[in-house]
Design a protein around this nucleic acid. Structure first.
Lengths: 273, 273
DNA sequence: CTAATAGTGTCTATTAGACAGTATGTT
DNA sequence: AACATACTGTCTAATAGACACTATTAG
């Protein structure tokens, strides 16, 4: 059939010419927490955590997953992700960026579902309300052994863990294929979403100011260094760290006194020019 | 209704509980071309080009677009992109990476369509067959004027151009919102796909070996420098360039003699250890 | 010889890593 | 005093930018 105009074509278009599918938006939300110290001199250690929700319906009933939900056909992808975030965390206006779209044909046992995942960051201290009752923060521990990456997640009660095999996709770039080798307790392909988020954050912390989305308004350079260390999963040297970070922060007049040692100056994020 | 098991739940699941939608995979394929020189001494200049297809059906009949097509519900996203690429370029086993998923609600006039875009790179000289008759390579010229980016595309006959306004999304990272200000001749939101591809390539050329996916097996350092210059859209200093590239390439015994000047050594890509 | 590109050497300024050393609080 | 963290200074090695200089070819 020949159409004379775009309008005529659209009026006759068969919207079911191709088989349709469902989409979801899933959000890996990260934050940092304090592990209380028992030594009055020692600083509380930082840990890096992800928000998980316990599923109370099939499929994957009683497993944990990152917050997510089906795409409302009248919402933009990111709007949909923000709506879900608001529902799960009572928080809006937080940092969010698109991470990756997962489209393996069997990633959902119900039917074909493509998931666009997002990375979100918050400063947990700014959370005025508690997260939903079926949601909880899990501390993250990443252990790399050659090609295998083991991730342990703990909220103090449940201990989840998964292992992913990373194989180099091509020799010209830094891309990897992820394959879930072992996974207890996490629904869908969410180990992939979480690890992708961790790696994105690890990369971006080196060349952007993304870390300040997880920091409270005032912080010490020691705290900031701890956050870098826990995300990069390695120790940094203090003088080098202070040099590198110097252009991104500015001193305030306030100090933090927190134990048997010299007080530290509180800094705030200095936006770039 | 309460289910006793995952199997029972799945057997009763209503696959149309949420309104479904269509997806496409769209591919921005880049390569480099030679612009023939008329001076026997001068080297041929390189240009950076993108493969476009002229649409012969509604919607956007007679407009150009990047190769793309609806997602086959039985194919993985990337497999679908590769299938389309094979159809449009007769080429397989080329470099491809996921770029971004565009999900604005009105991006397709027919209905709600979410598009996952891919970046692909080829060495045009290795193209054994011609691309499809309704496809053609367009040289890219990018002009940045403050917040505005103007892109001119030319295949020697058609001159397409679009302008995009880039506004910083947040102060902590390097992310921008893209808004199409002016667009003649390009279908859908493909100006966004093309500019996203250009920017991804521009970033990755600096810290990966991605450029070698566009190079022939043997090349001179002058040619390689030209490719960097045309993608980064700025001139580089030869000694610094040679120093930086030295670890990525290795000399061969062959030389290129191409005009009234000293012959140059041919190099090949040296894979990283 | 000339024009054009290929390729090397070197000076300088900046930056990253390592680590020594000083400062200041609580118990 | 002892300890823990805050903060500064400095040496060195590696790197990036700028540019002068030499090499080699066709016409």
């Amino acid at each position: 059939m020949e159409y004379k105009s775009e309008e005529e074509f659209l009026a006759h278009y068969d919207k079911n010419a191709y088989e349709k599918l469902s989409m979801t938006t899933d959000i890996a939300i990260f934050s940092v927490s304090d592990k209380k110290s028992n030594n009055y001199r020692k600083l509380s250690e930082k840990s890096f955590s992800v928000l998980l929700v316990k599923r109370n319906t099939y499929p994957f009933k009683d497993k944990w997953c990152v917050p997510g939900g089906f795409l409302d056909i009248n919402l933009d992808l990111e709007e949909n992700a923000r709506k879900i975030l608001l529902k799960e965390t009572n928080l809006k206006d937080i940092y969010i960026e698109q991470l990756y779209t997962f489209g393996a044909i069997d990633r959902d046992p119900r039917m074909r579902v493509v998931a666009t995942s997002y990375l979100a960051l918050i400063d947990k201290e700014r959370l005025n309300q508690q997260v939903c009752p079926n949601a909880d923060w899990f501390d993250i521990e990443v252990i790399e052994q050659g090609e295998l990456v083991k991730v342990n997640l703990s909220n103090g009660v449940d201990n989840l863990s998964f292992t992913i095999k990373k194989t180099l996709r091509d020799l010209t770039t830094d891309r990897y294929d992820f394959k879930v080798i072992e996974n207890n307790c996490l629904a869908f392909d969410h180990p992939l979403v979480i690890l992708s988020g961790i790696e994105r954050l690890k990369n971006k912390i080196e060349y952007t100011d993304i870390v300040f989305n997880m920091m409270p308004p005032l912080f010490t350079l020691g705290e900031l260094k701890q956050v870098y260390e826990v995300i990069l999963n390695k120790k940094l040297l203090a003088p080098a760290f202070r040099r590198i970070i110097a252009s991104k922060v500015e001193k305030t007049n306030e100090m933090r006194i927190d134990g048997g040692h010299r007080p530290s100056v509180l800094y705030r994020y200095k936006k770039r020019d």
